[in-house]
Amino acid sequence: MVEVKAETMPPNPIPNDRLKKRAAYLECEAMLGKFADRASVLTVPNKWPFEARPSGAVTASQLAVTWARANDPAILQLSDDEAPEIAASTLINRTYGLIAAAFADKIIGRDGERDVTAGMLKLISGRLSELYSGKFDQMIHGQVLPLISIDHLERDGPNPLLYHPATGAINSDFLKLVKQALGRLIDRNRLRDPIDAEAIASLFRELFSNTHLHARTDLSGTLYPRSARGIVFSLRQVDHPREADAAAGVAALRDYFLSMRERAARNRVEFLEVSVFDSGPGLAGRANRAPIPDEMPIKEEYSLVRQCFLKNHTTENDPAHGLGLPRVMLALKSCGGFMRLRTGRLSLYKAFAPGIENPEFSEEDLDFLDLLYGEQISFHPQVAGATFSILIPLGLGS
């Protein structure tokens, strides 16, 4: 018998975690669970229908950030689900694709061997120029309007739509920006009720201000080598007979869509989605001022997250910073909205019925439910950063 020496044996290949085109929330959660256990090469679809589902764009972006933080080096392999000549540009034009490519240390071609990092960086640079141009026709993709800052790729400063180009302070006129976004996404003639742009701008500002404070550094104050944050505006249309399709298998979201039936003036209901994401240490880590240990009970982590919403002040002197997440919840309650929050080991949601008269904020508004298990707050795979996805019904009719 010939003895084969250990050093001559081929190394075990790194598994390729490949998300299929039909993948949605549950498939993403299953994939996130794998990242903590072993290294992997990631492949996401170049054209992923999940992006057209509520919170799909930021969910997929958070998955990419979590994967990149778990791998050193983080290697992204391009998918072969589109023609070779358009595959790369198709991927970069989508929010999740841009984030995945920007956070990768190396990008290889669909053959699994060819290094295409340099070419992809050129495409990323071109896409960022479009997103930072302020020209919505260049920025918008389908019915998704991304406003993103990717810190480690910004040679000329942060996104001027979000920040003042000279001072770096948060944009002081969110109302103007929201009105422009709404005008680009929504045909007002098909809505029966007026849109409260000021309330939406306030919501937008509070969430982004919170994100701005915590996205770029870890809990020791050290800058992340790669960091990003942003807001994604989307218009979601839901036909009553197809709520299950729109909910992508999430019962809580399906039930929320069904609750609109009695108030809707027609079979189709339109929702404005405002989703905010960051690549920071997560809400519980911020509140704890230290990483969350694996042995911490999930109810304790939930309490830390809930505590973030109870703080109605900021330690910052800059008036651009938000005054607290309670304002977000009051705005959500006022419009009958739905929030999904994914941070740490938690996947939470809160839904409010439309038409509440004279709404006021109360601590009961912070009794979040588990997105998959309802009142039973349960462990979910660990994620990087935090994503808030808010759905606001439009034009329900009186």
Rank of each mutant, 00 (worst) to 15 (best):
M31P: 03
W67M: 02
M31S: 11
N46G: 14
L78P: 03
G33N: 07
A64Q: 00
K34C: 05
K47F: 12
C28T: 12
E27H: 08
P49G: 11
D81N: 06
C28H: 09
A68D: 05
Q62P: 08
A83H: 15
N71I: 02
E29S: 10
I86C: 13
I75W: 05
A36N: 01
T59K: 06
L63E: 04
T90R: 11
G56S: 04
F50Q: 07
D81H: 13
E82I: 11
Q62E: 07
N93I: 06
P49N: 15
R38V: 03
S79Q: 07
E29A: 14
W48A: 05
G33F: 00
E85H: 10
A74C: 04
E82H: 12
R53Q: 14
P84L: 05
L42S: 00
L42C: 02
A83M: 12
V65T: 12
D37T: 06
T43Y: 06
A52Q: 14
I92D: 12
A57E: 08
D72M: 10
V58W: 11
Q62D: 07
A88H: 15
W67K: 04
K47A: 14
I92Y: 11
L42K: 00
E82G: 14
T66R: 04
V44R: 00
I86W: 10
N46S: 15
R69T: 10
V41R: 04
P45R: 05
W67C: 01
D81G: 07
R53C: 15
A87Q: 13
A39N: 00
A57R: 13
Q77C: 12
V41D: 03
E29G: 09
N46Y: 01
P84V: 10
A74N: 03
G56L: 06
A39T: 02
E51Q: 14
T66Y: 02
Q62V: 11
C28F: 05
S89V: 12
K47P: 00
W67V: 04
A52E: 15
A83N: 13
V41A: 04
P45Y: 06
K34E: 02
T43A: 06
N71T: 10
N71W: 01
D72H: 10
A39C: 05
A68F: 03
K47H: 13
L91C: 09
S40W: 01
L91H: 10
D80H: 11
M31Q: 06
E85R: 11
R94E: 06
K47W: 11
W67T: 00
A87W: 05
R38I: 03
A88F: 10
R53I: 12
F50I: 04
A30D: 09
A68S: 14
L78G: 08
A87R: 15
A52T: 15
C28Y: 13
M31K: 10
A83T: 14
E27W: 06
N93F: 10
L76S: 05
L78V: 13
P73E: 06
D72P: 09
E29W: 04
L42V: 03
A57N: 13
V65Q: 02
P54I: 04
A70I: 02
N46R: 07
N46P: 01
W67G: 02
A30K: 06
T66A: 01
I75E: 09
A60I: 09
D72I: 08
A68W: 01
A57P: 11
E82D: 09
W48V: 03
A30S: 09
F35I: 02
K34L: 06
T59Q: 13
D37M: 07
A88S: 15
D81Y: 09
N46H: 08
